[in-house]
Design a protein around this nucleic acid. Structure first.
Lengths: 109, 109
DNA sequence: TGACATTATGCCAGATATGACATATAGTTA
DNA sequence: TAACTATATGTCATATCTGGCATAATGTCA
């Protein structure tokens, strides 16, 4: 649950292979994080594919640029609900959302 | 978003084929509801398969019987986050969660 | 029938997420 | 360099979700 710790490390510039090994993330926690990462990545890709700025996407979704930035960053303050609702709003089907969630996340470059 | 309306109808005993046609649910809203239904159903099945009561499952998850009941009923007050976290806590893999979410929901019996 | 176990529903205080705003940090072009 | 665009981060009031409790409804068995 201690996401603050993770953020501190990340902010300090640590590029960790997978978060789980350094931070004491349980399997459940890391699975949840990976799901969020996969959803966040898809949202980002979808936005770019449509050549939208975060501001335009925010307007489309009825939210703010800052929240879009946080969604794409899989910030701790964004829920899976929000990510899923956003993808659905952009026309992503339920089946596709399922695939995204199940998709293995590529390790941080 | 008016889920109160739906609850009133449901409470009145209306067994609707799919919710969308009677209530003015948008595609996005109904997709979200269906995802929650699929997750709720899986949770229920998983609990029964392990021969647990809602009380025992609640203890296992660190929550209350009432919330488990609401989760299984896909109540409006339960988030996708909660359903997913519960499934993960029971050992469901991320891939399986993905499949569940994408799975087509059987119409109400 | 009563006694008991299980599940469902209503409510509410505290926890968490959201939207909005300000501001910071790139990145680009002149 | 300045001016501009796009993205990131911090904060906060409000909205929504969660856990927990009470209680109702349903089911089961003697």
């Amino acid at each position: 649950m201690n996401t603050t710790k993770k953020k501190r490390l990340a902010k300090a510039g640590w590029k960790v292979g997978t978060a789980q090994e350094f931070l004491g993330l349980s399997d459940e926690e890391s699975a949840l994080v990976e799901m969020k990462l996969a959803l966040a990545r898809s949202l980002s890709q979808l936005r770019l594919a449509r050549k939208l700025t975060q501001v335009k996407l925010a307007t489309l979704l009825g939210t703010s640029q800052s929240r879009v930035a946080k969604m794409e960053a899989a910030d701790a303050t964004v829920s899976i609900d929000l990510l899923v609702r956003s993808l659905l709003a952009l026309g992503t089907t339920r089946q596709e959302v399922g695939k995204i969630i199940g998709r293995k996340t590529a390790p941080a470059a």
